Amino acid sequence: MATERANKNPYSNFNFIVEFDGMEELAFAEVTGLDSETTPIEYREGADATSAMRQLPGVEKYPPVQLKRGITGSLKLWEWRKEVRDGGSTFPPTKTVTVKLVDEKHDRNAPAMTWTLTNAWPTKLTGPSLTAKGNDYAVEQLDLVHERLDVS
């Protein structure tokens, strides 16, 4: 459940945890795309030809969530992506993904906010850009599509 700070100071954006199916935790450097959008439906009543268009809530849309992390040698994300590609036992092989924003105490059991992606599956997994120039670490990016985004 979301926790508002008594001092009203914002939380740091670098204190977060990503969990898959409530158990497996992987370290990521960046999470983007925690967005929710409702497409408006415009209409005008048949006898009401002179008034402005009215708008009602329409279809809920969620863009892919992008997770970036330094490559550690683990193949867990690639194996999940392979399940989607090859058609695993359940198709698509979905997971519940939670992103927890934590405070400076890093208490994962009392997050400041939690974003929950329901029925998420990897639509794209991008390998690193490798170059002999520079000293950055190798980064891979996972793009997840999902059916619902809830915030608590």
Rank of each mutant, 00 (worst) to 15 (best):
K133S: 08
S74E: 12
P57D: 12
T90L: 14
T96D: 08
V65R: 02
F14M: 11
A47Q: 15
A120C: 02
Y137N: 14
A27D: 09
Y43F: 15
Y43I: 15
G58L: 13
M1A: 15
V97W: 02
R148G: 05
E25K: 01
P93D: 12
V139E: 09
E45L: 13
G58I: 10
L117Y: 01
N15W: 08
F91C: 02
L67A: 08
T116Q: 10
P93V: 13
V84Y: 02
V139I: 09
T50V: 01
Y62C: 00
L34D: 10
P40Q: 11
N135A: 04
S12F: 01
V18L: 05
E79G: 06
R108W: 09
P128H: 04
K68S: 09
Q66T: 14
V145S: 06
L142Q: 04
H146N: 10
G134S: 02
T123H: 03
V65L: 07
T38Q: 10
P93I: 09
K95W: 07
S51I: 08
P92T: 07
E4D: 03
H106G: 03
T32C: 07
D48R: 12
E19F: 00
P128R: 04
F20N: 03
R44M: 01
H106I: 07
A2D: 14
T118A: 07
A2P: 13
K61M: 12
R69H: 08
Q55C: 11
T116Y: 06
V59R: 15
S51K: 10
D35F: 05
A47V: 13
V65D: 06
T96L: 06
V97T: 05
G22Y: 01
T98W: 02
G70N: 10
S51N: 14
A6P: 07
D21T: 00
S12N: 01
E79P: 02
F14I: 14
K76A: 08
G70W: 09
S74V: 05
V97P: 03
T72C: 10
L149H: 05
E83Q: 04
R5D: 08
T90P: 15
E19A: 00
N13K: 05
L142R: 00
D35E: 15
Y43G: 14
D35T: 09
L144W: 00
T114G: 07
T118S: 11
M1F: 15
G88M: 03
T116I: 13
M113P: 01
L101H: 00
F28N: 08
P92G: 08
T94K: 03
N13F: 06
V102N: 04
A2R: 12
E30N: 07
E60H: 14
P128W: 03
E147W: 06
S36Y: 11
L75K: 14
L125M: 05
S12T: 01
G87H: 11
Y43V: 15
V139N: 05
L130A: 09
R54D: 13
A49T: 00
Q66S: 13
W80M: 03
Y43H: 14
D86W: 06
L56H: 12
Y62A: 00
T50N: 03
D21V: 00
N9M: 06
A112M: 06
P10I: 11
T126I: 13
P122T: 02
E140P: 00
P92C: 09
L130T: 13
R54L: 14
T126K: 14
E79Y: 08
P122A: 02
V59L: 15
